[in-house]
């Protein structure tokens, strides 16, 4: 069933669907552009809340189950919000051999229950010569040690003025 006429109301107050309107308008009639729309939506909102997935399905004239299927298939899409600083920690082969599990432990110790950071493990960032490697938002940090990771994170926390 295609719910073309039904109006879907996004109940999530934090999500202003108007922001996404130009993206949908640009891609609505281009076949095969669902992934692109979802990527842009995630750029705008930081994650893909369920309500937004329904909204996109309706606007793109797709079944919500199909959109959800694509969202859950790909590692890039998140259905939960992330902290201000997203730590993408590489767990690739070279990083694994050079101790990325230890780094992960250090990151978790330093994070505590802090919502400033979100940790995401990824398969490979492609900076293998600098392993172990992580990215915090768009910045890459290489040749990590347990000590340097904690220093980097503490530095960010201080800049944010948090006492954590």
């Amino acid at each position: 069933m295609r719910a073309e006429k039904r109006e879907f109301v996004c109940k999530d107050k934090a999500v202003d669907v108007k922001l996404l309107a130009p993206v949908i308008a640009a891609h609505k009639d281009k076949k095969g552009s669902l992934i692109t729309v979802l990527q842009k939506a995630q750029e705008l909102y930081g994650y893909l809340p369920t309500d937004l997935i329904y909204h996109i399905a309706l606007e793109m004239r797709l079944k919500p189950s199909k959109v959800m299927g694509v969202v859950t298939f790909y590692a890039q899409f998140r259905t939960k919000p992330v902290g201000k600083y997203l730590i993408t920690l590489c767990q690739g082969t070279a990083c694994h051999v050079n101790g990325s599990k230890e780094i992960e432990r250090a990151v978790m110790e330093e994070m505590g229950g802090d919502s400033l950071f979100t940790l995401e493990n990824v398969a490979c960032l492609g900076c293998c010569s600098l392993s172990p490697v992580m990215m915090i938002n768009d910045e890459t940090y290489g040749s990590l040690t347990k000590k340097s990771v904690k220093e980097i994170m503490r530095g960010i926390r201080e800049r944010e003025g948090g006492d954590a």
């Binding site: 767990q91 690739g92 082969t93 490979c124 492609g126 900076c127």
Partner: peptide
């Protein structure tokens, strides 16, 4: 789509 971990 260079997905192999350890390849760049």
């Amino acid at each position: 789509d260079e997905g192999d971990p350890g390849a760049f």
